[in-house]
Design a protein around this nucleic acid. Structure first.
Lengths: 149, 149
DNA sequence: TTTGCATTGATATTAATTGCCATTTGCGTT
DNA sequence: AACGCAAATGGCAATTAATATCAATGCAAA
């Protein structure tokens, strides 16, 4: 499902939230930028270019809200700040390769774990609704510069 | 390999580090406590009971050092602070179930992904050295209180 | 013992995020 | 179309984890 602003609006309304201009502007950033992951500060900088009067607190609040709605997905790459990206769950799962040298993050898609959720759920008492998989290693650029093989 | 203080000492010496009393005390916390994950603050509080003169900065430095040595493993559960636990890599991989309601974290072991690393490595240009898998859901206690099924 | 260097502990600092609150705005109701 | 009110916003203060700084300490080798 290629998420549109209107669909986001419906999701908001369903939980008694409003689609304010600020929320729309922030949402549009993700729709425009595609499958990239952005920090709150990233979003703030992008948004400020055309809308200098938007507040950083609003950016944080909106990102949290959109994450609650599962429109965005909040991620943590271990560098102290959260990243957000469009949640494309349902179609395929998005995972990440993180370079231990330079911190670069590369995404990749795979469905291999969909079955695994049920296995784990059966073993534990958890009702599992989502999962996140991260691989750590060395990216191509860093492998060339230093001997990591 | 059931890690002992002596093995840690060897690892330290191999990289020209010393096994200071503070480092030994902090390491012992993890050896005593078993497979639990602790935040830096947790470790600080535990250590202070018997050794009130130990500094928080030393705790942070030691946890980082032991993580570099791969004696500990630094983890992020998305609540803003890092956790550390004994690294049992080599035997089996340790993963986590995180409750979205109360934040409880439960560990579980599984080898299912060992083969997957090679598949991903082949598809990407990364040299993969580690991975981390987290499942999000609702723990048994929270499932009883609210309807999450 | 003396010198050198890693380590430590206290404190200051940084940086991300959240809290607070007065003001504004969207939106259903008149 | 104007009203009323809760929701939302923006600016800034406060919080919190983590790191940097630096003088003092302590261990190891000469």
């Amino acid at each position: 499902m290629p998420l549109s602003i209107n669909e986001v609006k419906k999701l908001l309304r369903a939980k008694e939230y409003k689609l304010t201009p600020q929320r729309q502007i922030i949402m549009q950033v993700f729709l425009d930028i595609g499958d990239q992951h952005l920090s709150a500060e990233d979003v703030y900088q992008i948004v400020k270019q055309k809308h200098p009067d938007i507040g950083l607190a609003t950016v944080y609040r909106t990102l949290d809200l959109l994450s609650d709605l599962e429109v965005l997905r909040k991620m943590d790459f271990g560098d102290g700040r959260s990243r957000f990206e469009l949640n494309t769950a349902g179609t395929h799962q998005h995972h990440h390769l993180i370079c231990l040298e330079c911190g670069a993050v590369e995404g990749f898609d795979d469905d291999l774990l969909d079955g695994l959720e049920q296995v784990i759920a059966a073993k534990s008492k958890f009702k599992i609704v989502d999962h996140q998989l991260k691989f750590y290693g060395y990216c191509q650029a860093c492998r060339k510069q230093e001997a990591h093989d």
